[in-house]
Design a binder for these strands. Sequence first.
DNA 1: CTGTTAGCGCTTTCAG
DNA 2: CTGAAAGCGCTAACAG
Lengths: 340, 340
Amino acid sequence: MNKKMKSKVTIHDVAAEAGVSFGTVSRVINNDVHVKKETRERVLDVVEKLNYVANRQARSLAGGKTNSIGVLVPDLGTGYIGEIIRGIDAELSLADLDLILYTTHRTPTKEANYVANLASGMVDGLLLVLPRQPQDLVKTMQQRRFPFVLIDHQGTGQDCPAVGAMNWSGGYNATEYLISLGHKRIGFITGSMDLGCAVDRLAGYRSALKTNHILEDEALIYEGNFDQPDGYVGASALLDLTHPPTAIFASNDVMAMGVMDAVRNRGLRVPEDISVVGFDDIPQASLVRPALTTINQPLEKMGRVATQVLLSMLENPEKETTRIELPTQLVIRDSCGKPK
Amino acid sequence: MNKKMKSKVTIHDVAAEAGVSFGTVSRVINNDVHVKKETRERVLDVVEKLNYVANRQARSLAGGKTNSIGVLVPDLGTGYIGEIIRGIDAELSLADLDLILYTTHRTPTKEANYVANLASGMVDGLLLVLPRQPQDLVKTMQQRRFPFVLIDHQGTGQDCPAVGAMNWSGGYNATEYLISLGHKRIGFITGSMDLGCAVDRLAGYRSALKTNHILEDEALIYEGNFDQPDGYVGASALLDLTHPPTAIFASNDVMAMGVMDAVRNRGLRVPEDISVVGFDDIPQASLVRPALTTINQPLEKMGRVATQVLLSMLENPEKETTRIELPTQLVIRDSCGKPK
DNA sequence: CTGTTAGCGCTTTCAG
DNA sequence: CTGAAAGCGCTAACAG
């Protein structure tokens, strides 16, 4: 409502108002040392007065940084991802970086597409949560020397920065807990076996059985996909066995809830008739009744740590690749008991 | 590993390879009609071959659009926001727009700051979820004529685009349901009363009592803040009354869960001793035991609709401001019964 | 139909 | 210490 309705203040406006060249303004806002203190202050005053904010597009185009990092997630479904994002978000806002969220909706094409796009100037670095087909992407990014960190996708044998959880020991501990309760026939519902974490959890389960001299029965292993219906269907199949399990260990909490539904729908009770263990410890796990005994994954922390790793890579590109596995922990609640 | 390790394919590379000027390439990728079919195909081939992806920064710098819209949320906590974001995300990816997420962590300063930043070139439009102090922001954006839509914050009397849910009728219906069950003393735990939705829910509650000739008792109204502990503390206070309620209606599901905990901790049962109703119908609501009777808010849909409104504003800036209230619905589950 | 020419707003040399 | 100049990659007129 004043003189100009231009609404967009540029570096030139500031320069004019402060009586310096726009190059100087650029130096000031980039904290370049070579500016007389007095000049700096004058410019800063004008910046304040005019309410100037640098245009990020221009800044990044000109070769600077974008000050934002991209987060690629498969979806926003279960709260699992949400927890990770919270960690990322917390760490990012500490560093005053923006977060650009990309949802692939589980389509590898999109995944690849986004990576291409992002790595081409949109963001300074990329955080990939649970990527479906990391091989290609990783190759692309590595040859472009683009900074990225994988979250929750280890065990693919690739040498790249990643943070995840100790899935193997989680699988091992949950199984051993069930065994300690007296269970001998323990059903297992796997996750998507193309994901490293799913493979590791199964391996942990197998190992615990072996350690405790319990013969493995392939019939007790049902291949799921990490979705709730898999838990339901899997549990139903397991319960239909002529020699059914007395406990079921699902590779994630969502499936474990499906398992509980299936158990109840047959008139059986958790944990009196069937013990159920999950994996993840998503927020709902403590809410369902009976509260779910599960393996806690430090989701929020994984997000934080991955972000820290990425930021340190941004600062020091030469650092060697880090792989971090955060500890998982058995959380005993009410869904397990002794076998009948 | 070939000739150039440049790694970044630009419009010029494509032009050179296809033997045309880069202006022509620009036309092709922008679907300009004035290109010979043959030329177009040749260019497209090269694009494919070189794996060219337009640089968004440059594109937006030159043309004005950023092809991304900003979403401002208070936090990523309860899944409530997550649902809304899912709707936004779905609609946005349909339109091939990117989503830039900003978390304010409930600090009004940040909120204002982001708006200033964003409105200055980062994004083409803004979606504000549950803003804390919309008044100032709204003014800023309106005078900059910057497109935005408020989500879930009506009733502040401002004339601006917004989509929300019918909070009043939700409050009314839940209360009336409880009354129909025979309850006469119904406790109410409010949300943050600086939020329009919280005010409306309370008004709905009051109105239902009045319609049914039940005398309102201020002692039965506890002021909460939408957080779980408020439900616990509020319910405890209500239950301590010399003449306690037989049912408690919490202004959101999270608090309702706090209520259930409080009830149980006193050795009382839901719904036998105390009926509980929530509001929102977040994913956990159907998971807790007893499953929570609540008012469904079409969260995901609110996100979708708000996005559609914003997109239509982007297309046609002259359109008059739309305010949309989506219907809420009573979802009867297992947390309510007749009063003892 | 297609090439050419200005910038968009900013970072970076390169000279003073 | 500071100004001037050269782009970053692309879109949008403007000429042919």
